[in-house]
């Protein structure tokens, strides 16, 4: 099987040049081209358990806003979080985060096998429901590992230590001076934080985070390492 090119799919990552510069090996997951790994995959999973950064920007995601948005999404059979700034998982692995009383963010699982994002995007929306195409507006990075919270304390004002910021919690805040939505979504026992932020600033944020990670031996990792950690029970 020939290895896919990072530019062959309809959607390419805003930072694919960074990945090719790091000699990434790419893979196809659903319709998305993702970085599978940079180094030897089993070694990368070990590094990711300490501190890693992955780019998931090509995976599906969407959002909805408006006075009728929550009721409409719920009517589509989607389980919603009770409180704003929390997230819940669907049975197909899709994560739904409630950003306010009138706004939802819906993101795919790591294998892109869930159907919720696709289903919601194809439905005609109800009144007072407006789509937020997050795949076009926001990049999606993941920070993994035990040293993640300490690294975040250098670039973020919110306390993301795991005993203060629980699994499924959401923080909408400033990260390296960039507005970001941070969601804690652990990979089995390894802390993991999804970051959604302005897609045009992705290279800046990627470089800032890698720089902040350097003192903790943090490295760029591929989605293969994330899946290994998620399966490690």
């Amino acid at each position: 099987m020939t290895e896919p090119s990072p530019t062959q799919a309809l959607r390419r990552s805003p930072i694919y040049r960074r990945h090719t510069g790091l000699q990434a090996q790419f893979e196809q997951t659903g319709k998305a081209i993702l970085v599978s790994h940079y180094a030897e995959p089993s070694m990368e999973a070990l590094l990711a358990a300490n501190l890693g950064i992955a780019d998931l920007s090509t995976l599906p995601r969407t959002g909805f806003k408006g006075a009728g948005a929550l009721a409409w999404v719920a009517s589509q059979g989607v389980k919603l979080p009770d409180q704003p700034n929390t997230a819940v998982l669907q049975t197909d692995g899709t994560m739904v985060a409630k950003l306010s009383h009138q706004e939802l963010l819906v993101v795919s699982d790591l294998m892109a096998t869930g159907s919720t994002v696709d289903h919601l995007n194809k439905q005609p929306e109800a009144s007072q429901t407006y789509s937020l195409p997050r795949a076009d507006s926001h990049s999606w990075l993941a920070i993994t590992g035990g040293a993640a919270a300490e690294m975040f304390s250098k670039v973020c004002g919110v306390d993301l230590r795991t005993h203060k910021f629980a699994e499924g919690q959401v923080a909408q805040t400033s990260l390296a001076k960039i507005n970001a939505v941070i969601v804690r979504h652990d990979l089995a026992s390894t802390p993991c934080f999804y970051i959604f932020s302005d897609i045009t600033s992705t290279e800046f944020l990627w470089d800032c985070l890698l720089d902040a990670m350097e003192e903790y031996q943090g490295v760029a990792i591929g989605v293969a390492a994330l899946r290994t950690l998620a399966a490690d029970r």
């Binding site: 306010s100 004002g157 923080a171 805040t173 400033s174």
Partner: peptide
Amino acid sequence: MKLLTCPLNGQRNISE
């Protein structure tokens, strides 16, 4: 740093 409490997001730096 000054702090302000957002009714939705809680206490944050004033720069936000």
